[in-house]
Structure formats: structure tokens, C-alpha cells
Design a protein around this nucleic acid. Sequence first.
DNA 1: TATTGTGAACCTGTTCACAGCA
DNA 2: TGCTGTGAACAGGTTCACAATA
Lengths: 224, 224
Amino acid sequence: MTARTPDSARDIPEATVARLPVYLRALISLAEEGITTCSSEELAAFAGVNSAKLRKDLSYLGSYGTRGVGYDVEYLRYQIAREIGVTQDWPVVIVGIGNLGHALANYSGFRSRGFRVVALLDADPDRHEEVVAGLEVRSFEDLESIVAEHDVSIGVIATPAVAAQSVADRMVATGITSILNFAPTVLSVPDGVGVRKVDLSIELQILAYHEQRKSVAPGAGAVS
Amino acid sequence: MTARTPDSARDIPEATVARLPVYLRALISLAEEGITTCSSEELAAFAGVNSAKLRKDLSYLGSYGTRGVGYDVEYLRYQIAREIGVTQDWPVVIVGIGNLGHALANYSGFRSRGFRVVALLDADPDRHEEVVAGLEVRSFEDLESIVAEHDVSIGVIATPAVAAQSVADRMVATGITSILNFAPTVLSVPDGVGVRKVDLSIELQILAYHEQRKSVAPGAGAVS
DNA sequence: TATTGTGAACCTGTTCACAGCA
DNA sequence: TGCTGTGAACAGGTTCACAATA
């Protein structure tokens, strides 16, 4: 119907975007096992979705498969990485170097998947000059200069809840436009700034809800 | 249409279930500020959703508000906590006491929101007898006896990806029926076992996707 | 022949707008 | 009068089933 922009920039549904990294990971695993071609059925099994959904998702990117054959693992892997934007590294700053910040700083998955932690910041002077994951913990006051120096656009908040909003405000003021928030609080940011939230206790509570239902109604109907 | 079970056990949409913990947190904040009554508009603002969605969500639980007035903070808080199932504590085991496991063990949000970490397990004997967050790290072999002793139904996996599936299998075998998985891998479990996944690098990749789009198309259309 | 790519049907979730009620 | 609770309209996401094709 509508004319689409010629090469990229089709709009990919949000639900699909959230699954592309899963497919990317699956393709990397397959490549490491030396597998060079796979069907939608195989890749879907690896990624934990059904094959119809996988094919629909991939169809938003283009026609990268071969009918009767399947997908070339290396080729598809590159196409997805390019679409997500992780063919080059994104510089990232982490603010709040407590237990969680430590874990994040040491998380190898960042570096291997298109992200590079360029600075660790903490408001507590007692933590400064401590070295974590090969990086000196610096003052939160240094945020602006670090963002400017490394052209950072993604920030990670791992502070206590009470500090998170002011950290976010400061990040936005320095030019950061994407925030991953681990603090258990709702951030308000201007339009155009992306926020994603990871909340450990919320995930557990969702599990608890379903767990509770299991014991209440083991079969199908209600029990007295 | 269909007759519903008399008092509880209506089926609440999954999207609503995922937001109930957010409302619960907002209500706890309001209560701490000494606020005893709030409108859907106020509570929604606190929780970062719009008021229509909030009211629709709450309507699945029952009619706990008062028209013309709003909601009683304490009362609604209790009703949501009961619905989720966090009026009593859930015992939880954490397997994999690396950087992330440390952070999880020390995370105060678990204890304060209906969960109690009863054991920390690790396959590496070098970590055993280390004390983390007041708990001795024990052998993974102890899983079965710990689950039986504390009647654990929720397990947290914070191991490397390669170990996650076998840990999950073992958990399921001991009777755990809900798993929170931090390892970057897709778990396969039998029907009836709930799994939720938290994947740090996937969240960052989703941010990167949107970040990339911002710089490619600052206005509305495509740029040459 | 085997498998992709995709319209169409279906289902789930969101928003609107207002009737119902304190 | 003001705010909740909710049917109805809408939007987004998933699944089906099959035509297209290497």
C-alpha cells in the first residue's frame, strides 16, 4: 500500500525488536557449533519461539532466507546485528557501583555484544579510585566530560531508588538519550529519551502470582 | 457469558499481572508519604501508566475504589498484595554465586517484597563456606534437601549460560515450579513450570536499536 | 520437494467515552 | 459533582494456512 523508504528504516513492530537479540544470540550459538545453514524451525527451537513467529519477524527485515533451504547463519546474523545496530560498539556509562553495579561492570555479555563500558561513576567518594573490572570508579561529577569525550548515548542506572531520578535528569542534561534503569522506581524523562527498566522483585512477584494460582487450583476449576 | 468462580481466581490478563507489582510499589510509596487516599489519576502518574489502563487493570481484581472519591491506599495495597500472593513470604534459592549472584543475595528488595532467600548454592567448591549476605554458600548437591526442608518453589539461576539448563533440570526434579533465569540462554522446562528471564544485554540491544534509529532519521522521513 | 514469506483470521491488550454511583 | 468501572472501538501481536519459489 504505502510506499516504503527505499532501503532501511521500515518500522519494525516493538514485539519483534525485542526478539531480534534472542535470534542474534541463537545464530551466534549455531555459528559456534559450526552450523552454516538452518531452517526457521531449527532457529525457532533454539530461540524458544514458534517458527511462524520467527518467519514473520524476519520478514520485517527483508527476505534473507532461501525457499526450500533455510537461512545462511552468518549472513542472517550480520543482517540482524546491522538492524539492531550492534555491528559497532556502543559506549556505555554505569552509575552506581554497589553490588549490582559491580556485577554489571564485570558482565562479559556487554562487551561481547556490542557494548563497551567506558566509565563507572558513583556519588560516594569512598568508592572513588577503587578499580572495578579494570576501570577506576570516578565521581558522578565527571559525567558530563566523560559523555562528551566518548560520545556516550546510553547510560545504566544501578543506584538506590532514591537517587535514580536525579541521576536520570543529569544524564539527560548531558545528552544521554537511552537509559537502562535497574533502580526500582519509575523514571520520568523528556520525549525522545528511551528508558527500559529491569526490576528483579517485579519478576519474582509475577512468578509468585502464577505459583499461588497453581496451589489454589491444581486441576481446572475452583476448589472449595 | 461464562459463569465465573465465585470469589477469586478470575483470570487476570498477563499484561495486567505484570503491572500489579508496579501499582503495589506505588501504593507503598504513597503510604510512606502518609497519603491515605488517591485517585486513579494520581496513582497512575506514580506508576507511570495512564489512568484508564490503571482502572481497567484494577477492575479485574474487583471494585476496590469509591466513585467520586478514589482508592484507599492501605486497602488497595493489601488487595493487590493478596492477589499477587505476597502477603506471606516465599522462600527462594539462588544458584550461582558469582558477581550477579552476590548482588542478588544482597538485594534488599527481595526480603522487603515477599521473598526470603533461604540458600545460596554454587557448584564451585572454592566458593563453599564463603558467607554472602549472612548465608553460607553451599554445594549445589544440597539443593534437594534445602528445597524439601524449606518447601521452596521458586529458584533463581545466576550461573553461566552453559550451566543453566542442567541447573533448571535439577531444580524441576526437586520440585521447584517457578524459575527466574538470569543466564543468557533459553531454558526448556516441562509444562506447568513457570520461567521468567532477565537478560541485561538484550535490554541494551533494544535501546541500541532505537538509539540507532534516532541518528538515522532525526526528523520524520528518510534521509539520503 | 522443502521451506520461506505473507495475507487473512484470530486473539490480546489499549484507549475512549460515558453510564453508574458515592 | 467528581471519579470509578466498563462496554465498545481500536490497535497491535500471534497464528494459520497456503501461494511462491529455489
